[in-house]
């Protein structure tokens, strides 16, 4: 049986009085790519942020790599270096060069030697075609380049799980493909386990082993990727796919 990387049980999330996630249950196996889909405001970002402790949740359990997480800030801090997260707003650190952005985690958090970390960082930069920018500052890069660096920065920690939250949503159309290709390669060549929130339905169909469809904070269906896009189980998912011009 495949190894379970992450497992969520009976998770409930409130923003003050507002109940935004209802009894969330799912798990993701090693090497699996899960697309988290759903209309705007359905709770996708909130859910994905609960998985690395950026949002506190009020009830339920998250298990990472077989270990139940006791949700204190200190525990999350340790676990976060094994979970890479990339946001819509790439948010490179403007005060650091590209290389220093990437090295911060490996060197300061994981205490890798600077030489070793630099060598791996440069390899990753090569893979995304941005090696020549290692000494540039973020403001000198385009949006698409920044997002590729943000992905490299997350990968530099050798994470066991990657979380992507609409990473192409604020990019110009001509930049989108490059970023999506990197994520596809990661799934295919590196067999990376990942949870991907996206509005790019073609992309989701192409990479998702499984789709979680979220609406109003509830998982309405969990369906194999190939099946979800052909014949979704619920009318809501059907309506959602129609509304996406897909």
């Amino acid at each position: 049986m495949a190894k379970e990387i992450v497992k969520v049980e009976h998770l409930e999330k409130f923003y003050q009085k507002r109940h935004v996630l209802h009894d969330i249950n799912f798990s993701v196996n090693e090497g699996e790519v899960v697309a988290l889909l759903g209309p705007s405001g359905s709770g996708k970002s909130t859910l994905i942020r609960c998985l690395n402790g950026l949002e506190p949740y009020q009830q339920g359990e998250v298990t990472f790599n077989g270990e139940k997480i006791v949700p204190t800030e200190k525990n999350w801090q340790k676990i976060r270096q094994k979970i890479g997260m990339v946001f819509q707003s790439y948010d490179l650190f403007p005060n650091l060069t590209v290389l220093d952005n990437i090295l911060l985690g490996p060197v300061k958090v994981q205490h890798q030697s600077k030489e070793a970390a630099t060598a791996s960082a440069e390899k990753l930069l090569d893979q995304v075609g941005l090696r020549e920018y290692e000494n540039a500052y973020p403001r000198q890069l385009s949006g698409g380049q920044k997002q590729r660096i943000a992905i490299v920065r997350a990968l530099a920690l050798n994470p066991e799980l990657m979380l992507f939250d609409e990473v192409t949503a604020s990019l110009d159309p001509e930049m989108v493909r490059g970023v999506l290709n990197i994520i596809s390669n990661l799934a295919q060549d590196s067999n990376m386990t990942m949870i991907v929130v996206t509005h790019e339905m073609n992309f989701a169909q192409q990479i998702a082993d499984r789709v979680l469809f979220l609406e109003d904070g509830k998982i309405l269906e969990q369906t194999k990727g190939s099946q979800f896009f052909e014949q979704p189980q619920t009318d809501r998912a059907k309506a959602f796919l129609d509304s996406m011009d897909f």
Binding site: Q77, R80, G84, F87, F93, K108, V109, A154, L157
Partner: peptide, 23 residues
């Protein structure tokens, strides 16, 4: 300093002190 910068720093595992110092 924007909230997203702080969250990004947390997401790569920086401690509170490291977050303050480097970001």
């Amino acid at each position: 300093v924007s909230k997203t910068q702080v969250e990004t720093g947390k997401a790569i595992g920086l401690s509170r002190l490291q977050l303050a110092r480097y970001v």
